[in-house]
Design a protein around this nucleic acid. Structure first.
Lengths: 334, 334
DNA sequence: GACAAGTAGTGGACCGGTCCAAAGAAGGGC
DNA sequence: GCCCTTCTTTGGACCGGTCCACTACTTGTC
């Protein structure tokens, strides 16, 4: 009662297994009647090729591994969608692995993917061990999506343009008439890029002295606490730009708790355009990091490398867009 | 420059590949010096066993496939965590596939998993084609997690006890003093179970006539519209029990828009205890469906079946708990 | 010292595919 | 009718592991 093999199909169709293989791989060197006999046998037996046997023989798996550092990050899903659409069109499959789930073992989270001999690897978000990644990159194409940290040589990077995103936010708020604008900053390369670009844009508009930057841990709780701190300053800001949506949600609660109305008394902007920002209960102005497009470009990178494209790793930045919703407005004058 | 094989290791260590295989699988029938020689060669070459070759020969993959219908559902992640913890302890791996991502092709979403010859299958949420699932279940153990629809014979079901969850909510609200309680109902088996149990509990407390049930599509927008309808009735309910957190969020916006304060003027309860309900900006009283536990039990089911447990499919229900937060309170008297 | 009972290590069949070299069949030209 | 091409089809080596049957070497026993 084991799954049928290619030999079972061959016997049933009265041909050799080589011919079955030819038919299944779409050769046009097969007489129609034989082809039909094979296809009928396949159907009748419910035959499915064994992927292990195939990849062992072909020495490729037509599969790319995707290493996520935390499935909870909502923007991953759009990214995966973009990634998958392009891969799928090229006959490739995706294999997902969650680094967080496997972390407890202390092993290389990409280990299982490598054992499966994926043809390429997409690392989403913060990378695990950079040294290990460099070793992997010597064997198969590796793309880092959504992180801006330095990567080992030969590794491509695809992300949204954080500097442009932060600039869009600052200019939006300045354009609305805000002058004293606070930034709830984050950590890591992404946090730094957004903060620097925010500061640079404020400076360009002669508002260097009006820019207030407070660090946070990029969580809701952190956004809350930072905002409480910001709003209890003598010169209260009229707008807050949070490093991400989650921290922005914390900012909303803090403002609410202090009796401020959004956006009348305080404008709040997030980053990432997560599904939470889209809730009408939240309706947060935020930066869309075009994660779908990031996914597509990551796939493009891999496909190019499969085609033999050599060269050092490149950094591809997708332009983000500003999603204006209900949490920003002109400041109260006076 | 291809990855080293077991033969490369054997040559380097000066032994046969059979011995390398023995060492790697932890046999104690090997002399220590040979074992060390093999392990050293493995380390020096950076050898990793080829999973395809191994599973082809062993005729098992030590891998279970997980078919998700939408990665965006936040409760999946906790479920996966519970699932993975138990599987991992038993030397099994998880392979994730998103039915929604592969749906465009119109093929069986479990196809790639079957080609990879997973040893077992976990279907999370709404099942795809029940007939196809039945065919799969004849070959490998199949568990449905988080859905309550009827399943083909031989398939196990693990879910939270929706009837008990709805009862907890109704009793909590009744205990607070609410009498006129509305339910934003959902569809499918889960929606029906929750609604029926809500109605039954109301009846048991002599409140059959105070129970108001309105259907919804289980989205935020649906929850919003349904709540607007509910709150514009002559006899306005003092509490709303939504079929899930998302619809509850919609209810919150509707109440807010109509100038009602939560929980002073209206109590709202959700279901699922998603991360959104935990946001302090939302702080929703909700039912925790113990998805981590559901995942663990699903893994337990599979492991038992691997051990050879026969018998028809069983339904395992995990007891949910009520997570009381800030969206429920005693009703205003008078 | 012969024989039994381990212990340690090896060769090779096998898993289920792909693909190449070569065989067989069919058609064309003379 | 024969030889040459071209089109179909086939057997079998191979991918990288596992595992069984078997050999070679110890050790123990009487």
């Amino acid at each position: 009662m084991r799954p049928p093999t290619i030999r079972d199909v061959a016997d049933r169709a009265g041909v050799s297994k080589s011919l079955v293989s030819l038919v299944l791989r779409g050769s046009d060197q097969v007489r129609p009647e034989k082809r039909d006999a094979v296809l009928r046998a396949v159907r009748e037996l419910g035959y499915r090729p064994n992927a292990a046997a195939r990849s062992l023989s072909e020495r490729r798996t037509r599969t790319v591994g995707v290493l996520l550092n935390d499935l909870r990050n909502p923007w991953f899903v759009d990214m995966l969608d973009g990634l998958n659409s392009l891969l799928h069109d090229n006959g490739l499959h995706m294999l997902l692995a969650d680094a967080r789930l496997n972390r407890r073992t202390g092993q290389d989270p990409a280990g299982p993917l490598l054992d499966l001999r994926v043809d390429g690897l997409v690392v989403v978000g913060t990378l695990p061990d950079p040294a290990a990644l460099g070793a992997v990159a010597e064997r198969i194409p590796v793309v880092v999506a959504g992180a801006r940290e330095p990567v080992p040589p030969g590794v491509d990077v695809v992300a949204n343009d954080d500097e442009q995103g932060a600039r869009l936010v600052a200019e939006h708020l300045i354009g609305l008439g805000h002058r004293r604008i606070a930034h709830i900053a984050g950590y890591g390369a992404v946090g730094e890029l957004r903060r620097r670009s925010f500061e640079a844009t404020m400076r360009e508009h002669g508002l260097a002295d009006e820019a207030v930057v407070e660090p946070s841990d990029m969580t809701e709780e952190g956004g809350y606490r930072t905002t409480v701190r910001l709003l209890s300053r003598a010169e209260r800001p009229t707008a807050v730009f949070a490093v991400n949506d989650i921290a922005a949600i914390g900012a909303l609660s803090a403002a609410e708790e202090l009796g401020l109305r959004i956006p009348r008394d305080l404008s709040v902007v997030g980053y990432d355009n997560t599904s939470i920002a889209r809730l009408r209960h939240v309706w947060l102005t935020t930066v869309d990091n075009t994660s779908h497009e990031v996914g597509r470009r990551a796939a493009r990178c891999l496909l190019d490398r499969f085609e033999g494209a050599a060269g050092p790793g490149e950094v591809h930045l997708a332009p983000p867009t500003l999603e204006i919703r209900g949490s920003t407005a002109r400041p109260l004058t006076g």
